[in-house]
């Protein structure tokens, strides 16, 4: 604990060099963007990279273009800047809110929108190291959280080996809008939906995403949607600010007359990965958004929830969060 193992450092200036360096560095080489997760976990001794490739000096990673049909957001753009992009603020308030409600302004100034997608869990048993068993940190060691203090842990997507909550906000909002990520590796570029980026823990909670170690997220793209304007990111937490979500919901609606034509619902703070609630979305189609339909959608979103010892409240809280977010989004659809 409370250590940073020695590592070597490189700061390339092009994406190509960065990808090449990952292979040069060999196993244990990691990309470091803002460093707000990785360096933090290195100080805790949870992450122990032998070498670090600092992505902070690659201008092409930070290009943002929100003027076209789709939003194109460079992975190296800073969270605080993207949070105030006028197009996001006006046309995708859920995206902007998911960023501005995350962390603190200092952390948002350091952290990048690409790195934030891969933010790691806040599970105290994961972070604190010894003596706690943690399959994510030390595969096969067990999960201290399952029989422990699991108040902030997940109720969706959990497995017997891990119940750690995905802590981020931005990826939740992106998931609601079917965002894509472009990644580049030694073999060139490929694209995958944000929906395919994160993994449920299953038996291998140490593997949190589907990227290869030598693949780098270079940009995020949000395709056109009719659900962007009437959207919101509602985050419920223990403090009025600067805290992780106990439950959050990214919601977008397309309302025609009184009835919903298209609905997007994604959940944060309650699941082991950014969680899309498709059945809840479908329950709203061709229905008006009322307190009742919103509450019903919320309940559907948590139909498969599996409570632990102290986190059962998240099922009711999460359902109400979804319901409230739907009502906020519906109001925005008539403005």
């Amino acid at each position: 604990m409370l250590t940073t193992r020695p590592f070597t450092y490189a700061a390339p200036t092009t994406i190509a060099d960065a990808v090449a360096l990952i292979d040069t560095g060999g196993p244990g080489t990691k990309f470091l963007a803002g460093g707000t997760t990785l360096y933090d976990l290195m100080k805790l001794g949870v992450e122990t990279p032998a070498a670090v490739v600092d992505l902070g000096r690659i201008p092409e990673l930070a290009i943002v273009d929100t003027t076209g049909d789709q939003l194109v957001i460079g992975a190296g753009a800073r969270m605080c800047d993207v949070a105030e992009d006028p197009v996001l603020l006006h046309d995708y308030p859920a995206l902007a809110e998911s960023l501005s409600l995350a962390a603190s302004q200092q952390l948002r100034t350091m952290a990048t929108v690409g790195g934030n997608l891969l933010q790691r869990t806040r599970c105290a048993y994961f972070r604190a190291g010894a003596p706690f068993a943690c399959n994510k940190r030390d595969p096969g060691s067990g999960c201290a959280a399952r029989e422990g203090i699991d108040r902030v842990h997940a109720v969706l997507g959990v497995s017997d080996s891990c119940i750690a909550t995905y802590a981020g906000d931005w990826a939740v909002a992106l998931l609601a809008f079917d965002a894509l990520v472009d990644v580049v590796g030694p073999g060139g570029e490929r694209t995958l939906p944000v929906a395919d980026l994160h993994r449920e823990p299953g038996d291998t909670p140490q593997i949190e995403h589907t990227l290869a170690p030598n693949e780098l997220i270079v940009r995020i793209r949000v395709p056109p949607t009719d659900t962007g304007r009437a959207s919101t990111y509602l985050k419920i937490r223990d403090r009025e600010s600067y805290a992780f979500a106990l439950a959050s919901a990214a919601v977008g609606l397309a309302v025609d007359g009184d009835v919903v034509r298209n609905a997007r619902i994604a959940l944060g703070g309650v699941a082991t990965r950014p969680w899309r609630a498709r059945a809840a979305e479908e329950s709203l189609i061709d229905a008006p958004v009322t307190a009742d339909t919103a509450r019903r959608a919320g309940r559907i979103a948590f139909a498969d929830a599996r409570p632990g010892r102290h986190n059962g409240y998240k099922i009711e809280l999460g359902a109400r969060t979804v319901a409230n977010a739907l009502l906020i989004a519906a109001q925005r659809s008539v403005r």
């Binding site: 806040r122 422990g148 223990d238 403090r239 009025e240 600010s241 600067y242």
Partner: peptide, 16 residues
């Protein structure tokens, strides 16, 4: 103590 840091032991922030 498990929540032995300032992110998990929640003291009031300005917005509180």
């Amino acid at each position: 103590f498990l929540n032995a840091d300032l992110a998990e032991y929640l003291i009031p922030v300005n917005a509180d």
